[in-house]
């Protein structure tokens, strides 16, 4: 069964998921038809939270976590742009606190653009977007101080959060601020659920911009994600059935780590090669029930190296030409 024993299938599956997303973006853009997105309470509460801040005359606080400039931060800033748009219209002050200088620069641009697009650039306060520090607990202390001093009426904690999440949430709770939170770190979600009024769980965080703006590209991307989820669920079901069937029979060959199965080959490898091939395996004889790693299904996603694959003969560069500048 060596013919399908390759890691390419895993990659092809990811390409399939990418195609699902791209196809649905294309489809939604050209169909011009509203697609249904289920109600997300946390996102419906955004307007209430801003309204409350406006009535109380207190600022709206937004924090995108302590992550660097990545897809999570950009998504958080995308949601904050929507919140800022509403806050700008009502003249509600905003505070965006950041722990990463790169995110700070991007946030400043986005927030200024929002005020500009609304024709309210005179209401834009350059101090509303603040870089505090890139040190985790110093940032937690800084934001907690700001929450208590400025008595924020609404707090949005959306992004990449770690141990500091509960410090923020409980401090904001102590002054009675309405809190909407969401983290891509699943270990922090329970803390937010315990302490905040509304929580975006898992991919609801990524669905937020599509939900709020209904832009065809974003909605199409969301539909593509749903297709991808269905494909993954189908794979799990298929895998469960096939793996169960493949584990039943006994075999006289099973896979073992290369270092145990072919010690004579292993001993001839350099340290670099050993590091590269630490997970390489070979076959060994022995009657026993099929282990998970012996099944064809497992091998679909875990490439098998034969002894021949491990020996790559290459010419050497001329003496003294070793390229490393390190």
């Amino acid at each position: 069964m060596q013919w399908y024993d390759t890691g390419v299938l895993g990659m092809l599956f990811v390409v399939l998921l990418v195609l699902f997303i791209l196809y649905n973006i294309y489809r939604t853009e050209h169909k011009k038809k509203d697609l249904y997105i289920r109600r997300i309470p946390g996102l419906n509460a955004i307007d209430d939270a801003i309204g409350r801040s406006t009535e109380m005359g207190r600022p709206v606080l937004m924090v995108p976590g302590i992550g660097t400039l990545n897809a999570i931060s950009v998504q958080a800033l995308s949601i904050f742009a929507h919140i800022t748009k509403a806050a700008a219209q009502f003249g509600t002050p905003i505070r965006i606190c950041l722990a990463d200088a790169a995110v700070y620069t991007v946030a400043q641009e986005i927030i200024r653009d929002v005020y500009q697009q609304q024709g309210l650039i005179d209401r834009y306060d350059t101090d509303s977007v603040r870089f505090l520090t890139d040190r985790q607990f110093a940032f937690a202390a800084g934001v907690s101080g700001l929450i208590l001093r400025e008595k924020v009426a609404a707090a949005f904690f959306l992004g990449e959060w770690y141990a500091e999440s509960l410090i923020f949430a409980e401090t904001a709770n102590s002054i009675g601020a309405i809190q909407i939170a969401g983290s891509t770190e699943k270990s922090q979600t329970p803390f937010f659920i315990a302490a905040c009024d509304y929580v975006l769980i898992g991919d609801e965080f990524y669905a937020a911009s599509a939900y709020l703006t209904r832009q065809p590209i974003l909605v199409g991307s969301l539909v593509g994600q749903d297709w991808a989820k269905i494909a993954m669920a189908a794979c799990v079901l298929f895998g469960f059935l096939v793996n169960s069937a493949q584990r039943l029979p006994e075999t006289d060959m099973h896979r073992v780590p290369l270092k145990d199965g072919a010690p004579e080959v292993w001993s001839q490898l350099s340290d670099d090669q050993k590091a590269d091939l630490e997970t390489a395996e070979t076959w060994a004889k022995g009657e026993k029930a099929n282990a998970t790693e012996d099944t064809g299904l497992y091998r679909l996603f875990n490439p098998f190296y034969s002894k021949e694959d491990l020996t790559v003969k290459r010419a050497k560069k001329p003496s003294g030409a070793a390229g490393a500048t390190e």
């Binding site: 699943k186 990524y206 969301l222 593509g224 994600q225 991808a228």
Partner: peptide
């Protein structure tokens, strides 16, 4: 939850 987050990040 991991699936959803992973797919969201991919998109």
């Amino acid at each position: 939850v991991d699936w959803g987050i992973g797919l969201g990040a991919l998109a």
